[in-house]
Amino acid sequence: MNRRFVLVIFVMVASFTTITIAQGQEGFPTDNDVNDIAKKLYCPVCPNTPLDVCETKACQDWREQISVQLSDGWSEDQIIDYFVLQYGERVLAEPERGGFTSLLWLLPVIAVLVGLVVVWQALRSWRSARLIEMQPVPSQPEVSPETLAKIEKELRKLA
């Protein structure tokens, strides 16, 4: 009983200390913490500009807001959800999957599959057109550079 009690206290103190140290280092949240989240968002106003590199005052305010939210203990998901709610879906670097936007991912996959089928069919039809004097077809002798060099040497002797 005693040992367990000590163990629990120890764990609590250790975690508390670790968290405090982690937050205390350089003053949580650091610029990097903010950027980690800002990287995943786009500036709501400027076109196609990620939030961590955008230089406008508006983006400064948003990063400041992320910083405040982080120090209030918000998780990354909560912050991102808040941004989507406040500013619309365009702040996400890729649209949330579901419904219509799943087409974005589906169509290229379908295109590749269809393409593979087409290529397969084409190759098959090409292969079935054969020369009639085909018996066991020797593989085309690879005209290696060595052979070619030798042949050219011989030809030059003839010329």
């Binding site: 069919q121 054969r130 009639i132 004097e133």
Partner: peptide, 16 residues
Amino acid sequence: MTTEAITEAPGKRVWL
């Protein structure tokens, strides 16, 4: 153009 081809593939105009 290999003119010796006697058997031809049925014109599978796959893409058209």
